[in-house]
Amino acid sequence: MAKKSLTVLAVCGSGVVSSSMIEQKLTDILGSVANVKVIGLLPTSVKTYVERGDIDFVVTTSPIVDKIDVPVVKGVALLTGFGEDECIAEIKQVAEEILANK
């Protein structure tokens, strides 16, 4: 069976620096279960992006003020290494639930 696709928003204050850092990490974590597309973004652009559709979930290093309809995982642990295993487990769980419904 072909791998399903996941589109993940990687959000940080610059839309580039820490989102780029976690981009590869997301591919490493989820690459075996899905084709992962990661989009780096600013927190203020998230709502518009999610409303446009096709976004499965969000990993962020900045607080997101807007209410959005997809799961949001805090990703700073991926940068620091502290709580990283729990963070990876949460990302996997969120991804598995989404993939199960696709």
Binding site: V16, Q24, L79, T80
Partner: peptide
């Protein structure tokens, strides 16, 4: 041009740990 520095930024993350 931050997009050009993605591999370097990713390397930085491994250094942090």
């Amino acid at each position: 041009n931050p997009k050009d520095q993605v591999p370097w930024l990713q390397k930085m993350m491994t250094v942090f740990k």
